[in-house]
Nucleic acid binder design. Structure first.
Length: 560
RNA sequence: GUCCCAGUAGCUCAGUUGGACAGAGCGGAUGCCUUCUAAGCAUUAGGUCGCGGGUUCGAAUCCUGCCUGGGACGCCA
């Protein structure tokens, strides 16, 4: 393959050149009026790739699409990547790729190794991606796992496309909910000591609060804890908060989700960023005072309601600190682009966030918000409602212990973010042995196993004649492998990582079919040459499979 | 009431940003292991793409009206 060019890009250029040479009318001199799209065909009878550009041009040129298609295809030489071109009704141009060219990609994949599929479309721009950011008032549950995995896989993909990625968790360690949390833990703490104490209204009822209170009792001496009630509550609350954050961090790490930074909301207040951001809005006359509270007039930029930034009691709201947080991201830390990943319960927050961009004099394009639909959990036929405040939680830990990290990650990443999903716990357990994850990993393990045999029997296959590869399933396998670069760029620009698991499954399928049809290491001396070529082919396949698994954060086992 | 997301095989979900006969996994039926891993392969059954209009060469995909499900409309986060 031409260095740094995907199949799509190569074919697109060929078609553009074809249109130029076909010399239509002046109306096509500016090629900005149309966009050549190359599609992978579903059926081999329509070739490997196709374009429907002639159907689109027929409007501009006012000509029969079949004629246009014929003119274009006549202007294209069948050489290099192209073995054959066909024109099909009502005006498709179908490309059949040259086997010789396809086979050449094997060496390319082998030489690129784990860099295969990477690109530099990110041009090293600084991109910050913030995800999960669950309130540290309770443990992570299954619903949060969706955002966690979405974020971590997206970050991996953006990295391989040349973005300078920075993953961040925003800790909401200030505000009302934290106050409730402090009070709840303190009440449980006192109750543990048989001191009469009542839980606050709307307090956190979950069992885990008792656990934390116990843990604090154990790890501190009585004399460490301040004697007056106010300071005691603060002391115990902060200790509990730290335990909770540790807990969240551990759970995420057990899902192989890691961050570059844990950003404290409270720090915005302490470091003066909050007041700086507020001044910024004040100076632009975008705030007002009403009912004793300070408001941001976000409706000026399309929000549905103005938002309170500082309550009449003087404390900042979530909106207030969020202005400061994004002020920090965009104007203080100067990320070229930021991605916020939120659950659907925060979608009402989107207009507010968008209205903030012009208010901060920031280009809308620098902010991307990814909303994923909430996960409903089912156990048997009963739906479980996840509510931290009421205390019903299915923890992430339980799930990982049941089905394993890989199954968990694959399951979540394979659904598009905007589709609702139902997580049936019993089903997940049953499926833990019969599922696509094992299908994919099995393909990788099979390859390793064959390569191991080759190593033991000391077969050198560096020098071999790849042109011996001609079986349908060999060619199909190569065809699948060369899709990866296009796919990766696509995912990066559309922020849609759920295509990757489906591709990987498809690739694994092509390998299994190949495995069934083509014996790699043969006893027969006559097959020695083809054996070497196939060893090279599967070495390349191993690279592509491992790459996909790595990006999804899954194991690529040597044996199963 | 207003706004956002979805409705595709028995189940869970894809469908490359309008293309060629609608796909996968699981589940069902049948067949394939003296050969590198059968956690595999092959054949097969199963669909009014929620319903009705519209846009055009062409719609699961775009527009519109309904129906159903999830979510949001706080000086909570």
């Amino acid at each position: 393959m031409s260095k740094n060019q995907t199949v799509n890009q190569i074919l697109k250029q060929i078609v553009l050149n074809g249109i130029q040479s076909a010399n239509f009318s002046d109306s096509l001199k500016s090629s900005s009026s149309f966009d050549v799209q190359i599609e992978k065909t579903k059926s081999q009878k329509n070739g490997d790739y196709a374009t429907s550009i002639s159907l689109k041009l027929s409007k501009i040129l006012n000509k029969n699409p079949m004629e246009i298609a014929t003119s274009i295809s006549n202007a294209i030489e069948t050489k290099g990547i192209i073995k054959n071109i066909e024109v099909a009704k009502p005006g498709f141009i179908n490309f059949f790729l040259s086997e010789k060219w396809l086979i050449g990609n094997i060496e390319n994949i082998l030489s690129e190794g784990s860099n295969y599929g990477n690109s530099n479309i990110g041009k090293n721009s600084k991109i910050q991606i913030e995800f999960v950011s669950v309130n540290p008032t309770g443990p992570i549950h299954i619903g949060h796992a969706r955002g966690a995995i979405l974020g971590s896989v997206l970050a991996n993909i953006l990295k391989t496309n040349g973005y300078d990625v920075f993953k961040e968790y925003y800790i909401n360690d200030a505000g009302n909910q934290i106050e409730k949390f402090y009070e709840s833990v303190y009440a449980r703490y006192l109750q543990n000591k048989k001191i009469q104490a009542s839980m606050p209204e709307d307090g956190y009822q979950g069992e885990y609060i008792r656990e934390i209170a116990k843990e604090i009792s154990k790890s501190f001496n009585e004399k460490d804890i301040p004697s007056d009630k106010k300071n005691a509550k603060l002391f115990i609350g902060e200790a509990a908060l730290n335990l909770m954050i540790e807990n969240i961090k551990n759970d995420l790490e057990s899902l192989k989700v890691f961050y570059d930074n844990w950003f404290s909301e409270k720090s915005l207040l302490n470091d003066g960023i909050f007041s700086e951001a507020l001044d910024f809005l004040n100076n632009k006359n975008l705030t007002k005072t009403k009912d004793g509270a300070k408001w941001f007039t976000s409706t000026k930029f399309g929000d549905t309601k103005d938002k309170v930034l500082i309550r009449s009691n003087g404390t900042p709201t979530y909106f207030g600190t969020d202005v400061a947080y994004h002020y920090s991201k965009l104007l203080k830390r100067n990320f070229d682009q930021i991605i916020d990943i939120w659950g659907a319960d925060h979608q009402g927050h989107v207009p507010f966030m968008k209205s903030m961009m012009p208010a901060l004099n920031v280009d809308q394009e620098r902010l991307k918000i990814l909303i994923y639909q909430l996960v409903t959990i089912k156990k048997g036929s009963a739906a479980i409602r996840l509510s931290k405040r009421k205390g019903e939680i299915v923890t992430l830990k339980d799930l990982i212990e049941e089905v394993g990290v890989d199954v968990c990650r694959y399951f979540f990443i394979s659904k598009s973010p905007e589709s609702q999903m139902e997580f049936d716990l019993d089903y997940a357990k049953n499926e833990s042995k019969e599922n696509p994850v094992y299908y994919i990993q099995y393909a990788h393990a099979r390859i390793c196993s064959i390569l191991e045999v080759a190593k033991e029997t000391k077969i050198q296959f560096n020098d071999c004649d790849l042109s011996l590869l001609s079986h349908e399933s060999e060619i199909d396998l190569i065809n699948k492998m060369i899709l990866l670069p296009d796919l990766m760029q696509n995912i990066a620009s559309n922020l849609s990582p759920h295509h990757l698991p489906h591709y990987t499954l498809d690739l694994a399928n092509s390998f299994h079919v190949f495995y069934q049809n083509c014996r790699v290491i043969s006893e027969d001396k006559n097959d020695f040459e083809i054996s070497k070529s196939r060893l090279k082919l599967i070495s390349a396949t191993k690279i592509v499979l491992a790459k996909c698994l790595e990006i999804m954060g899954m194991d690529a086992p040597q044996a199963m």
